[in-house]
Design a binder for these strands. Structure first.
Lengths: 197, 197
DNA sequence: AAGAATTGCGCAATGT
DNA sequence: GACATTGCGCAATTCT
């Protein structure tokens, strides 16, 4: 309930352990339109990393918008060109939402309602507060992850060491046992001879 | 030569296996000035995450600049406010560099030369190409990291299992040994009696 | 000298 | 609703 959290996500655990999948993009209508060009591929191991087409957009900081919603390098042309200064920001959502309106609402039932989804305008203090908090959470989470990884690593080392000791002990015991067995067999013979005599 | 590549890095393998340390920031003068507000603290475990002051900047996309150089939430005010449109971009370095000029150039010998460092303007095709390549590399690298982590984890599990088996074997051998010892002592007594008779 | 690999960071979507 | 996770792209740095 904590480590492999997103196991529930459909597409996720689908074909691999965990990373490299769209995850958010694929499921969310807002971002889905420009979803996975890059992320998709990470699945087919090596090789495939070099797929993302090099659309050389003309816009300047489209990257901003781009990254804002984790979209790779699509939709650089049309939309997303007005918010360079991020003043109208907060509306990336809307823009995309509307851009997508053409989709039959029947196919995306529960997702059409909040067309404006509360205009979080990136200027709002609330927005910054949210972001700030999330950033803190992110740092914390990553720190935790790092610690976890470290622990696992050290645990492995420790176990390996312990393993060696155990194996040595086994070797020792085995030898001891052989010795005793030998002695016993000797005694046995001896006893046999005595009985025969 | 491939997995634990940055083993040579001083601070790195210093105290632990691999992650969690500043690494780059701590060593480089340029970034060091605004370096670790966030990373620093991540060391002192929990608690300290809520430190970043909630400067509610007035600017809009300062975030852009912000993130551009991975600086946490400092320098929101003065500099970094002119490149919203990312045209002059590439000069973040300079801005900061100049901001830092007060530092005796003797301390930063090799870093003052390329004042303009080739103005890569984010519009250039080259820039996009670079970014694209880096993104690919990043994905690849992360995939690799994930695999590595997974492996370590599995290895730990495997070792643990093996450990149990070994311990069982030891228990078994020990018991067997005890049995033989007992038998031998019996024989010994028996032999002694026989000899005495 | 140049490109690939790493790493920390913030954002946004999503999970809990 | 707040916090936790996670994928993603950016930029800085390091490795090769």
């Amino acid at each position: 309930m904590m480590s492999d959290s997103r196991v529930s996500s459909v597409i996720q655990e689908w074909v691999s352990s965990y990373p490299g999948q769209p995850h958010s993009q694929a499921l969310n209508p807002v971002s889905s339109n420009q979803a996975a060009p890059s992320s998709q591929m990470s699945q087919m191991d090596m090789i495939s990393y070099n797929q993302s087409q090099g659309i050389i957009r003309g816009g300047a900081d489209d990257r901003v918008a781009e990254q804002m919603m984790g979209l790779p390098y699509l939709s650089y042309n049309s939309s997303c060109l007005n918010n360079s200064s991020n003043l109208g920001s907060s509306n990336h959502h809307q823009s995309h939402a509307s851009t997508q309106q053409d989709f039959s609402p029947f196919l995306l039932p529960t997702l059409r309602a909040p067309v404006t989804k509360r205009s979080i305008s990136k200027d709002s203090a609330e927005y910054r507060l949210r972001r700030e908090r999330n950033n803190i959470a992110v740092r914390k989470s990553r720190d935790k992850a790092r610690r976890r990884i470290l622990q696992t690593h050290q645990r492995a080392l420790q176990l390996q060491e312990e393993n060696q000791k155990l194996q040595m002990k086994i070797a020792q015991l085995t030898q001891e046992l052989d010795t005793l067995k030998h002695i016993l067999s000797q005694r046995h013979l001896q006893g046999g001879e005595e009985g025969a005599a």
